[in-house]
């Protein structure tokens, strides 16, 4: 994937660029708003990681607004040291797709960027999700694994749906909290781990192979062993 990183802090930018390249992405970097806007507007990218505050008069919000006014729908993830809630709302309102506060864990950034690019592909209305022998019918809201029906609570269904939509990708705990429960704060306790382990009891335990995997220091991933 081609990813543009617009970030003026040398250390942060270097760290992000290196990490993304190691994960197999092609990365361009701009260290000010002007170059960032130029690159973003003139070259195709699969995702843009945009710092909110940039030197040179053009900040992240301006870049995004300019892009969106040109009908450029490239997925944008905001990076910001401004952790205030209103700030997040402002970024998302301006057309941002996701928002991450500094300091952040690289695993979190990577997971979110990869989730964004998947979303960016525009999959259209899906009625059925399949991962290995696990099938989810979104219309009848039923789940089967190896032909066997699995009974899920409504929230467990949403959790599994989220994991299946991001199959093969790392999904962090905060992504689940935001995506499944619409919570935007740190719940202090490991509530997500408990919910995932309950889901595992139903989806993985009765079967010979596990689909829900824990990714150390990052989160979870739904995948078949062959993947």
């Amino acid at each position: 994937m081609r990813i543009l990183v617009v970030e003026d802090d040398k250390d942060v930018a270097g760290f992000v660029v290196k990490g993304l390249r190691e994960s197999g992405h092609v990365v361009e970097h701009a260290d000010n708003g002007r170059d960032g806007l130029f690159l973003a507007a003139s070259e195709p990218f699969d995702a843009i990681i945009l710092d909110r505050m940039l030197p040179g008069g053009i900040d992240g919000l301006r870049i995004l607004e300019t892009l969106r006014s040109q009908r450029n729908t490239v997925p944008v993830l905001f990076l910001s040291a401004l952790g205030q809630v209103d700030d997040r709302v402002l970024g998302l309102k301006a057309g941002g797709d996701d928002y991450l506060t500094k300091p952040f864990a690289f695993a979190e950034l990577l997971a979110r960027v990869e989730a964004l690019t998947r979303r960016g592909k525009g999959e259209g209305p899906v009625t059925k999700l399949t991962v290995g022998d696990l099938e989810m019918d979104l219309l009848s809201r039923s789940v089967r694994r190896a032909g066997q029906k699995i009974d899920l609570q409504p929230r467990e269904f949403l959790l599994l749906e989220y994991l299946m939509r991001h199959a093969g990708q790392v999904v962090t705990r905060t992504m689940l909290l935001e995506g499944v429960w619409d919570y935007h704060f740190d719940p202090q306790t490991n509530v997500i781990d408990v919910h995932v382990s309950r889901l595992r009891q139903k989806v993985d335990k009765p079967f010979s192979s596990a689909l829900i995997h824990t990714v150390r220091n990052a989160g979870y991933m739904l995948r078949t062993d062959g993947q």
């Binding site: 429960w181 919570y183 408990v194």
Partner: peptide, 8 residues
């Protein structure tokens, strides 16, 4: 619902 799992 969210904390129920922890409680359980």
């Amino acid at each position: 619902d969210l904390y129920g799992a922890v409680a359980e």
